[in-house]
Design a binder for these strands. Structure first.
Lengths: 198, 198
DNA sequence: GCACCTCTCTACCACATGGTAGAGAAATGT
DNA sequence: ACATTTCTCTACCATGTGGTAGAGAGGTGC
């Protein structure tokens, strides 16, 4: 019982990092097992197939992301721009602390349709809340009026695009250091404020 | 001579699409060869190893992207916001016409460091020009003053984030149709205008 | 004590992968 | 006409993959 959750947890943990950073297809069960320090068979005992492991990793990652973001929202003033700030900061914080988490979102979008649908389902409640929230704030004139679904998609794409791929930003001469990432985040927030202020 | 370039070209073409859409590790040489309709050996004749093929695909993709963007810039009025519009539209156009192109950029950022460096080198001239351009326009007060490298990185990340991953946007309830992608692009342009106007 | 259940292991398999060896066709130069 | 180079093929190989079979260690209930 004690070892039970421990081993399963450690496998899930290592798989999250490896899948998120290197890609699902690029990481073999052997590599994950080696990282955890168990036999591959042990891994296949807990997760009957690689696909099962991928699904489990996905679910736990989405959960972790959602929880972090929701907590950030609640702990902020009710000014909509402040809340958007909080969400962006929360996502960036997680991107720095555990780059694989957002990498997984990107990764899974590339996988088969069923996975994509499950991802959608997992995010659905969070997105619905966000859209409803934006709608209300826009109606009250506290945000520039626009299609809230568009704004949500835009913020989502922008934040994940930046936070997920500091490596990709090297292509435009960027250094993926924490300090530079923070500067980039500040600039992004300024952008969002300018674009969303009423 | 006639078949020469033809076969090589067709291999490069198919590999670009497959690598960009499914990922480099997920696509085997057999699949590419099958798609082109030649034997795997023929493929290995033109590109001695898979890695050589990847490098060649990368170079041609960057070239194609750069050419498209530069052409869009030249054919526009000299208002900086119009030019940014033109770049964004050019990238989106390419994203619709050939989704694999931008997918490759994302894909390669995940590969080994040497590839990332080569990607950087390939983009270097284009980026240097863009940064210099932004700097001049900001100095003349035609754009909001900011760190041009930051702005370049931000625009790059945003545009590729959206244009590359319509599939990922399904996670936030988005439909990756052409019409919706266009609406998203319009919203993005409004964002950029609001954020960059002086 | 003993059956039972949970957990991890070694040994093995069928299959797909990237890559090699080398032969045969087809164009090309002289 | 002949030799040579260019190009594509079939056959094969070593390796790594996801997955199976089944045994053994260690605790738990009765």
């Amino acid at each position: 019982m004690s070892r039970r959750s421990s081993t399963r947890e450690r496998i899930l943990d290592a798989a999250t990092d490896l899948f998120g950073l290197r890609g699902v297809e690029a990481v073999s069960l052997d590599v994950i097992a080696g990282e955890v320090g168990v036999a591959k068979q042990t891994l296949l005992y807990w997760f009957p197939s690689k696909d099962d492991l991928v699904q489990a990793v996905l679910e736990s990652a989405v959960l972790e992301l959602s929880v972090g973001v929701e907590a950030a929202i609640r702990a902020t003033s009710d000014d909509p721009l402040d809340r958007i700030d909080a969400v962006v900061k929360a996502v960036f914080r997680q991107a720095v602390r555990r780059p694989a988490l957002l990498g997984l979102v990107r990764e899974i979008s590339r996988l088969s349709a069923p996975s994509g649908d499950r991802l959608h389902e997992a995010f659905e409640p969070l997105v619905a809340r966000a859209v409803g929230y934006l709608e209300r704030e826009m109606a009250q004139g506290r945000l520039r009026r626009a299609d809230p679904r568009l704004v949500a998609a835009l913020v989502y794409a922008t934040v994940t695009g930046i936070a997920t791929e500091p490596e990709a930003l090297r292509a435009v001469g960027w250094q993926p250091t924490t300090a530079d990432l923070r500067a980039l985040r500040s600039e992004l927030l300024a952008f969002l404020r300018a674009a969303l202020a009423p």
